[in-house]
Design a protein around this nucleic acid. Structure first.
Lengths: 232, 232
DNA sequence: GTGCTGCAATGATCCATATCAATCCCCTAG
DNA sequence: CTAGGGGATTGATATGGATCATTGCAGCAC
């Protein structure tokens, strides 16, 4: 597969510290993949050592127990990295939630490139530290919050994340389309579909949100929601 | 405060990629602190930009809600790093669980040093990636496991982590002293003290463990515990 | 239109864990 | 020795969310 010019261009955002010809070098090493919604890129326990860069679309990282209980452990957006460089196997499934484009690298190619480009490693470190912080806040949510608090947090978080990429990014939006079905929301928050549905309905009744269609959410009373989400 | 030779020596473990004189340079920038059990090094929301390296002892990272509910989001062992370099504030409390020694650096000093020592950044990246994986597995535990499963996992995890530093590290040990009280176990697992106590007692009755004193645990039937902890 | 199919909403009931309330058991001070 | 105190255990009860079952509804094929 030839190198993909989209990857080359998009990698610019991530490798902004590198000069142009090095960016295209990285781009040439990558392979471009189209994923359809629901398609899994990496399986938990699979031994393909793969690293990727999301060009477009939204993906989930998930792990599950043998009896089918599933927990989503991360949601990945355009320009984010996927996978585990430096010789360790990826620990979770990576599945596209929407149609998506990714640029994959063999872990060893990427490692070699990264080792000789400290600026890239630095960026990666900053991102990883930020992701770790986000994941730790998520622990608080899963371990100590009620269903309503979880959902309020989730909706407020989504309103900040799901800004349309084509528009100027100026803060949270009050109406957005979730890339998740109810089951996935449940798997993010450690709840069941039914509880998600009921608490969402509570919010509707209380006039905090409107749900004009299955996946569409409109926040009507942001302060009210924040009141439920409470203090950090 | 003078630079601390212990820090210089211990930093060797972390900065093994660096030559000796650079290690002592880093050591010289650090300040050595003694912490007593229960003492808090960094408060959530405090604006001290601080980074540290644990020399000795065990510390917890925790966040809490305004009404007092607390979640431990990380446990830190000797040689681990604490804090958030590169300009972001630490997001959680850092509290010593045992008496501890740490070597602190001002975030800006550390950043400057790290930027010019890619080997250090690389190590830090590897550690951060590993910690992220561990934290994501913890999400599964908090979101989808029952109290018994949580506790079984916890005990098995402890038996691997709490190898005595003075002994050869050859795998998990079946008897160990927890550095946590019941409340802290509860705050790690997202449970209440009472539930921790009861499930622990179940394990005792089932002959899986013995609890000769408050903080001591002896694993009598490892396979049995693993059966409860189930599949990943 | 009719019927199917898959998700979401609603309802009824159950149960694991939280909550509230006593003890109990070291451990230390005197 | 006794007394006091903080953590841990144990007990009784409440409840949030899970579970099981049904119904509703939008999209699509025919």
């Amino acid at each position: 597969m030839d190198h993909c010019s989209t990857c080359v261009v998009r990698n610019r955002a991530i490798c902004s510290a590198l000069e142009m010809d090095e960016i295209s070098l990285l781009g040439k090493m990558g392979r471009h993949h189209k994923l359809v919604a629901g398609q899994t890129l990496i399986w938990e326990g699979e031994d393909s050592l793969l690293v990727a860069n999301v060009i477009d679309g939204i993906l989930k990282l998930s792990t599950s127990l043998s009896d089918g209980r599933e927990q989503i452990v991360g949601v990945v957006y355009p320009s984010d990295f996927i996978g585990r460089p430096f010789g360790t196997r990826t620990q979770h499934n990576v599945t596209a939630l929407t149609d998506a484009h990714v640029c994959t690298f063999s872990s060893s190619d990427f490692d070699r490139f990264a080792q000789s480009h400290p600026e890239l490693e630095h960026k990666l470190l900053e991102r990883t530290l930020a992701e770790l912080d986000r994941t730790r806040r998520w622990l608080l949510l899963l371990g100590r919050m009620t269903a309503s608090e979880k959902l309020a947090h989730f909706l407020l978080d989504m309103s900040q994340r799901l800004v349309r990429p084509d528009c100027a990014n100026d803060g949270p939006v009050d109406g957005f389309d979730l890339p998740f079905g109810r089951q996935q929301i449940a798997d993010i928050l450690g709840l069941t579909i039914e509880t998600v549905s009921r608490r969402l309905n509570d919010f509707k009744v209380q006039g905090l949100i409107a749900v004009p269609s299955r996946r569409r959410i409109e926040i009507l009373d942001r302060d009210g929601l924040e009141g439920i989400a409470e203090a950090a």
